[in-house]
Amino acid sequence: MKKTEWDIEIASETSWFSFKLNEIWRYRDLVALLVKRDYIAKYKQTILGPLWHIIQPLLTTAMSFLLFNVVANIDTEGKNAILFQLAGITIWSYFATCLTSTANTFIANAGIFGKVYFPRMVMPVSVVISSFLQMAIQFVVLIAAIIVNIFINTEYHLSWNILLLPIVVTIMALLALGLGIIVSSLTTKYRDLAVLVTFGVQLLMFASAVNYPISTIANRLGTDSMIYKLVAYNPLSILVDTFRNIMLGGPIQYGMLAYTAGITVVVLMFGIMLFNKVEKSFMDTV
């Protein structure tokens, strides 16, 4: 008998720090195919197909505009109110889609996970990418609306800040991924969190400055109020606000952006650790 070098070792205990990024890279074709699957499966047997990506934010924007700007008369820091809402909804819906879809990674894919091994992280990563495609379509709508606005109101705010855009979107994606895999890891055994997430995302939207600027709260309640702190230090409202300021013009708070990036790294690391720990034997508890 020859001594053999083992390729795979299956044991009960695994270290907390095995990120296996190379393994995900090896399965990149699978990621691509899953993204494709999501896209095809979503619009099979619909008439409008991907147009729904455009209709949905437009209707939501119209509603938010009526509610927050016409009825409640919330100030938009001098930005066009419709664009303000559209921008906020575009970036927020990316976060919301990523979070809600990654949060049930284990439960939704239990059938596949129970039969075949592949790096489990492939699933949430593919969700984040396919949601990104969806966001990209909505982003085009936003650009179109901005261009229309340039013609109608001759307002023009494009600046070098646009270079920050990929960073903001990436942070948003990673934060959603991190939170999503934390929730998905915790829900394998106790399903309570999954229930929380579905309506929690809606509640979170109101705390994330999607329909109003952070400054409104400062003006109305003062910077010492609990609510202001809750919103101002919420990484999500910082990302939404920054995204809006990039697209529609406004000051970028680099310090707060760095703070958000820091939080994202921590959340993501924790999420990956937890996910790795859970993926090993979640089939027994799911």
Binding site: I8, I10, A11, S12, T14, F113, G114, K115, V116, Y117, K280, S281, M283, D284
Partner: peptide, 8 residues
């Protein structure tokens, strides 16, 4: 176990 869908 062999197909790595769960651990021993």
């Amino acid at each position: 176990l062999l197909s790595r869908t769960t651990t021993p």
